[in-house]
Nucleic acid binder design. Structure first.
Lengths: 75, 75
DNA sequence: CGGAGCCACGGATTATAATCCGCATCTCAT
DNA sequence: ATGAGATGCGGATTATAATCCGTGGCTCCG
């Protein structure tokens, strides 16, 4: 149902794996709770832009690349 | 410290004015509290990506365009 | 078998995002 | 001078983002 959260979750997961990191690694490096990054990737939560930047920094990419295009969300 | 919030605030304000909208207009159209829109533009708050998308939709732009480049944030 | 790494998932709590008031200031038009 | 529209800003409250636990289920390897 929450299309947006799922879309960013997929992108975070994809990018994380591309970086060869575990959820634990990402959590520790970004200073985010380990169980919370799981929830992010599963699209269960609606994160803040601050968290988005912390994650993007660790995954060495622009925050914008973790966001789906607005038209991809048929809300 | 809230470099990030200030940066997105500036962009929202700039884009809102480009659309010829008041804070009140943006608030009503996006379903966000008016005083909160003011705080966003002043960089006082750390918004969620869901709010970012609601705003971007009203301002007819990609959410990504409201986000500064990661290198522009000296954290 | 046993342990280690990785992940899903939940409950309870804490931090904070977001709302709902309200009042003050300023500009501009009447 | 007055009233309407736009914004700043603050306090108090509610909703929810985020944390801090934990359990259990995999797979892979000794």
């Amino acid at each position: 149902m929450d299309q947006l959260a799922k879309a960013v979750g997929e992108r975070v997961r994809y990018r994380r794996r591309a970086c060869g990191l575990s959820q634990d690694n990402l959590a520790l490096l970004s200073g985010i709770d380990r169980s919370y990054v799981g929830r992010i990737e599963r699209g269960e939560v609606n994160i803040t832009v601050e968290k988005l930047y912390r994650i993007a920094k660790v995954l060495v990419c622009e925050p914008a690349t973790l966001l789906p295009k607005i038209q991809d969300i048929h809300s």
